[in-house]
Design a binder for these strands. Structure first.
Lengths: 196, 196
DNA sequence: GTAGGCTATTAAACTAGTTTAACCTCTTTT
DNA sequence: AAAAGAGGTTAAACTAGTTTAATAGCCTAC
């Protein structure tokens, strides 16, 4: 079992420079944690306590609606961040669940630790600004894609954009991510297979 | 015609404290600008040159798809920010248009000015981190809403959430924002009126 | 080895939302 | 006062995607 935070530091160093002292400060305030397949990092209704950086594994973020249906809004694999950010920043109950699809290892920042780190290492404001900007841009692109393209196109785009995820998660989760039923995705796949 | 940046400073001061000197530095690097109804701040295909803070007016951000259809992803009114952030941060052609629905006054940050300001006033990293976090959370909420609620519910939610915008923009734009046709929105409104 | 759980497929009946096209108001322009 | 343009409504025919339900292939567990 790996316990060092090297993958996180490598990721951060793509965007900002941290001194040895700053790395030490950071190291003391994050936690390495393992989850088993099926376990939840966040559950709808609880306050989301951490931002988690994925070292190894695969997770889904989803919402259960009033009819009991699951809607996946995002997957996360190695080098991605995950949390219910709305809940995390406002300290209110989460709308989303974050669940491990595989055995997963993460490095976690608690709210208190992160707030402290923002004051101790002001550059982290910059780091997270950049990370969140990218996430926001991707999120808005998805809104447009959902409106302006039929399900078949969205599936093809998804396969091209995230070939790794397509291999790692079951089809019914991809259907949920695309906003369609598993039956309809099955039909689309059939059509695509016959047209090749 | 108003030319001072007081509304911007008031907005910023909700999140961070700026000294007199920092305010002076900022003031020198932003531009106040007026647009007429119908004018574009950003056009699809051009690189988005500014982040704009809306002092007065109303704008829409939309994408024209390959079939020539308009999809509105966002409105902006007083005290909101607008831009094609993807284009702005990557310096690549914009996917979106930002057009004024009313005569509009904005305070603009060019890319170069903002990058310089991030180094001169590191707190601005924090400020924009906070602003963009909120935008990201709102954007993800919208993805879920679009998948898990029928158009009628989405319209009712929109009216409750943005009563001001509903008054200021024509119905066909609201339909586009909701991801439905104007004809179908008209039908929904009819049903709602008859059920009251 | 067979029972149970989880994932995927197929097909028929259905529904939410689109398309097309005609028509109705208001304003604004001439 | 007529014409033109922008926004909104109505209705019929259509289609993309859902629902329901039956079936089948795998694993893993006992």
């Amino acid at each position: 079992m790996q316990m060092d935070i090297e993958p996180l530091l490598a990721h951060i160093s793509h965007h900002i420079y941290l001194s040895k002292e700053e790395i030490a400060i950071l190291s003391e305030r994050v936690n390495y944690r393992n989850y088993l397949k099926g376990q939840f990092i966040v559950q709808q209704g609880d306050v989301c306590k951490h931002e988690s950086f994925v070292v190894k594994g695969c997770l889904k973020t989803f919402h259960i609606d009033s009819e009991g249906q699951e809607h996946i809004i995002r997957f996360a694999i190695e080098d991605w961040w995950t949390a219910d950010m709305g809940s995390f920043i406002t300290r209110t109950p989460a709308d989303y669940n974050v669940q491990c699809i595989e055995n997963t290892e993460v490095i976690q920042f608690s709210y208190e630790a992160l707030e402290e780190l923002y004051t101790l290492i002001p550059q982290l404001d910059r780091f997270f600004r950049i990370i969140i900007q990218k996430a926001f841009v991707a999120s808005e692109k998805r809104i447009i894609r959902n409106f302006s393209h039929p399900a078949k196109d969205r599936y093809v785009t998804f396969r091209e954009q995230y070939p790794e995820i397509e291999q790692r998660v079951p089809q019914y989760m991809i259907a949920s991510y695309l906003g369609i039923t598993k039956e309809f995705l099955s039909k689309i796949r059939n059509e695509l297979a016959n047209s090749d």
